[in-house]
């Protein structure tokens, strides 16, 4: 685990869970991920920030192989990501993913959205899965909406359901790909509250976001990306008060001005 050792800042709460090493990714001419070295320890909350087009979403999606990579390795709990097939599906079940556009199953009720994975992937009994789903929906504050369809809920409610859906699989790590970017401002807080709550309970999280407040309060580490490369990583306090790279200074200058 040289990547872990070479990482300048490590929260050190546990052994490495997600390790990216020498990862390269191209979209045609665009070099989307450049030689990425990143290790996320168990229980750690890593926030990835950067200007749009910097490759942070690609990085997040590569961890559960929604994007394939050209070179390098990604391991989860010591296991390299499998190729397509049943093994990959099994691995994805261990990795919760929350999307910018929620992606709740439009033809299923809120309850069915949360029980589908446990029933079909984990082979859980329907009653058991529903009991668990209702607990999770209560936890994220949408328990009373269980019988509705996604389109009948607000964006904030949908995103909280999406978090519950991911949690229902009891994942080892949760990936958040800009979870609040598609939300109206008054709904952002209700989603962030759930995420902060989750972080405090010790969930390992990789969060791509523009919410600097969340990064300050919940992150163990901030990773700053630009042009497909990791430019800088540090604790939130250090990063926000004392960025070392020009790109990070420039970026922070732009977003913190208002």
């Amino acid at each position: 685990m040289t990547a872990q050792e070479s990482t300048p800042v490590s929260a050190g709460r546990g052994e490495p869970l997600v390790v990216l090493s020498g990862v390269q990714k191209h979209f045609g001419q665009l070099h989307a991920l450049k030689d990425i070295e990143l290790s996320v320890a168990r229980g750690e909350v890593v926030v990835v920030i950067g200007p749009s087009g910097s490759g942070k979403s690609t990085l997040c999606r590569a961890i559960n192989r929604l994007e394939t990579i050209d070179e390098g390795t990604i391991t989860l709990d010591g296991q390299p990501l499998p190729q397509e097939g049943k093994a990959l599906a099994a691995l994805r079940a261990e990795v919760g993913m929350v999307f910018q556009s929620f992606n709740l199953f439009a033809h299923k009720t809120i309850l069915e959205n949360v029980t589908l994975g446990p029933i079909k992937v984990r082979g859980m009994k329907k009653e058991e899965a529903e009991k668990q789903a209702r607990e999770l929906l209560d936890r994220v504050g949408v328990g009373h909406q269980a019988e509705k369809y996604p389109a009948q809920l607000s964006g904030g409610q949908q995103q909280r359901v999406a978090i519950a859906r991911a949690l229902a699989m009891e994942p080892k790590v949760m990936l958040f790909d800009e979870p609040t970017s598609a939300l109206d401002p008054e709904m952002i807080k209700e989603v962030l509250d759930v995420m902060v709550d989750l972080a405090q309970q010790g969930m390992t999280m990789v969060v791509v976001t523009h919410e600097m407040g969340f990064a300050r309060t919940a992150a163990d580490r901030v990773v700053f990306m630009a042009d497909g490369a990791i430019i800088e990583e540090n604790t939130p306090e250090e990063f926000f008060t004392n960025p070392t790279s020009d790109r990070a200074k420039d970026f922070l200058g732009k977003i913190l001005k208002h």
């Binding site: 559960n64 049943k86 099994a90 994805r92 993913m97 999307f99 992606n103 439009a106 994975g117 079909k120």
Partner: peptide, 15 residues
């Protein structure tokens, strides 16, 4: 995104 969400919770392609 619907197919991606399905795969993300561990459904196989066929599922």
């Amino acid at each position: 995104g619907q197919a991606e969400a399905g795969r993300a919770i561990g459904l196989t392609f066929a599922q």
